[in-house]
Simulated assay, not measured.
Amino acid sequence: MKNLPRPPKTTARDDLETVLYIYNYKGEVRGYEPTDIEIDAILAIYDLYDQAFGMPSDALKGPGLAPALNGAIRHAYPHTYEDGKIPHVRATAFENVDLCPICGVDPPVELDHHLPKAVFEPLSLYAWNLVPLCEACNGAKLAKDAGKFLHAYFDIVPDVQFLRVEISIENGGLVTTYSVDDNAELDAPLLTKLKFQMEALSLNNRFQKDVNKYLVAHTTGLHMAAEFGGSVGVNYYLQKQAVVETHAFHRNHWRPVLLNALANHGAFCNGEFKNVLPDGQAAAVADNLATKELVEEI
């Protein structure tokens, strides 16, 4: 749920001219070689897309283009792969993007057509319509929902808190429920998109699956913080770690949101964390350190 820098699009004309041509396949003539006027018409559709901030419209489907040209653009998409004629389109999209901008859970491995190429064929190769996503997010998006998802290049997310998590401890386990805050200080269209993708992509369930695995890495730190500082020490540890991870990711990433919520959960800080994250080894280390300090004092 964060923005990405827009990749360069300076090669748009050259890219189209490179991958659109007539060729023979098993004796059959295929492809399409557009005129300069047709290339200009495709680039005009790109401009319309930018002006509409990636929102769908019939004009972006290329109604004025020859159907064969639309189909040729869509079928040329594999040329963005490593062994294709324009691999830089894919390569530049993935530069410096470590995690999926929607979920922040997994690394991006696929290019999502923000407006699906099956419907908006002229945009099949357009750099600003191609967004790096993880396999789970890209696989869960449906063509019928075009325009309902956050556009990582165009929908600017302000620096306000909108992701929240409710926490409860049940039978020694931590139960988390993530949601988008209805009262967040966001424009209504942006809030609607965030809430829609939260539900459509089952992000709460995906976050839940990673919560326990993630917290295990903090088990020893939490126990040591409690040994030396009690509930105040646990609270301090969680708040400091939240600051670190907010800087590493962003304020609405599921990890710092979780850490801040745990810091504000009195029962968790007062010792319930020991039931959720038991660690006898950490307690033993703390006891040994305390014994050593006592011996040194004597």
Rank of each mutant, 00 (worst) to 15 (best):
181 D>Y: 06
228 F>A: 07
284 A>S: 13
29 V>T: 13
195 K>M: 08
30 R>Y: 02
291 T>I: 14
65 L>H: 05
74 R>Q: 11
227 E>C: 14
260 N>L: 04
7 P>W: 02
188 A>K: 08
67 P>W: 00
283 A>M: 06
255 R>M: 10
31 G>R: 01
249 F>L: 15
111 L>D: 08
252 N>F: 05
91 A>Q: 15
66 A>R: 05
137 C>L: 14
256 P>D: 03
146 A>P: 02
28 E>N: 10
109 V>G: 09
68 A>Y: 00
80 T>A: 12
8 P>A: 10
8 P>H: 06
76 A>G: 11
48 L>A: 05
223 H>W: 02
55 M>K: 04
268 F>H: 09
165 V>F: 04
153 Y>M: 09
278 P>D: 07
8 P>V: 07
16 L>E: 00
263 A>R: 05
110 E>S: 14
290 A>C: 00
145 D>G: 04
1 M>Q: 12
236 Y>T: 15
113 H>G: 12
138 N>K: 00
152 A>G: 08
200 A>D: 12
39 I>W: 08
278 P>R: 03
98 D>A: 12
32 Y>H: 01
228 F>S: 13
44 A>W: 01
88 H>D: 11
20 L>Q: 03
93 A>K: 08
29 V>M: 10
279 D>T: 01
203 L>G: 01
1 M>V: 07
31 G>H: 07
102 I>K: 00
17 E>S: 12
122 P>I: 04
287 D>C: 05
226 A>V: 02
218 H>T: 05
280 G>Y: 04
149 F>R: 04
35 T>R: 02
272 E>A: 12
36 D>E: 10
183 N>A: 13
264 N>G: 12
119 V>K: 14
177 T>A: 13
116 P>S: 12
5 P>F: 15
251 R>L: 11
201 L>E: 14
247 H>E: 15
153 Y>S: 14
196 F>E: 11
18 T>W: 07
196 F>T: 10
17 E>T: 05
268 F>E: 06
75 H>G: 00
257 V>E: 12
113 H>L: 08
40 D>S: 14
34 P>D: 07
79 H>C: 01
213 K>E: 15
